[in-house]
Amino acid sequence: MTALLDPPSAPSAPEPTPQIDDVPRSIDPGLPPSDRIFFGVSRVIGFSVFIIMAAIGLFLGFQSIPTFKRYGFSFLTESAWQPDKDVVGISAVLVGTFTVALVAMSIAFPLALATSLYISEYAPAKFKSFLVSMVDLMAAVPSIVWGLWGFFLIQPKAIHLAHWLHTHLGWVPFFHVDTDPEASPWAQTRYAASAFIAGIAVSMMVLPMAAAVMRQVFSQAPVGEREAALGLGATRWGMIRSVVLPFGRGGIIGGTMLSLGRALGETIAVVLIVSPAFDIKFRPLEIGTSTISQLIAGRFGEATSSQLAALLTAGFVLFIITLIINTLAAMIVARSRSGAQE
């Protein structure tokens, strides 16, 4: 405002106000070249992951068309797999797949929960990183090693556990085995090579993933709420129950489902341990079962082209199931408080 200082002079024309359009204007400064290159490269890589996944799904889907055309809905309901008799179906295999996964998860879930709670809440700071790396190391053990471990070290012990479970809980259909538990000598082979033993081996493979996801969310539980609980006179366990577990619920569910997705597809340990069987049964302690991945691995080498198409169809079903489970898991983790923060 210079008007006050200037002596009054000849009245000048009022200054024209610049015309401003009342529309949203562009305020994007644009990206420098280095950022543009980086964005471009990372976007291509990110999309290629998506494209590869879609390509696998499409490939399996197209390969499945002839099988579905030939067998129709019976492909999902038929239990036998006898391509030479023109009878193929995956119902027994599906049941076996879920039985092995169920056994694996019921062992892995409590172990993973306890491991992750111990590491994040109780372990002394010095010990913590050592434990984390040990659990990570479990994930690095090749699955063939877990399979051998299950076959040579666990199976001889597990058949006694299976026999004990059958003897005392045999009235529950789930623990039943088609043999007389009181017979002496009891039929050890009826308890070997079962979904139960395969499940134990698979549980060790999926435990690290579940434990890692749970530990991550537990360690994110807000310090303020932890201190609030402790400051009110809570014990450490009381604090965990009222703050850490409710906060980590999404991670617990999500981590469990992610490992379930892996347990459903686990192959080599199952191939090593179980002896193939194609009847629909819910008796995991009993000898023999089949899973989709075991079926594919076992029959792939000798398959004719139409058999190969049937195996790929079974693979397609497994792909869809794990896709659904993993997507649900990702949604649960993302929607929970622990996943949404940061």
Binding site: P222, G224, E225, E227, A228, A229, L230, G231, L232, G233, A234, T235, S242, V243, P246, R337
Partner: peptide
Amino acid sequence: ITETRKRIGMVFQKPNPFPA
């Protein structure tokens, strides 16, 4: 410790109600 903390309460800088 729990008994002591019960007898000597604390209010923190950042409000920290249990959100759930």
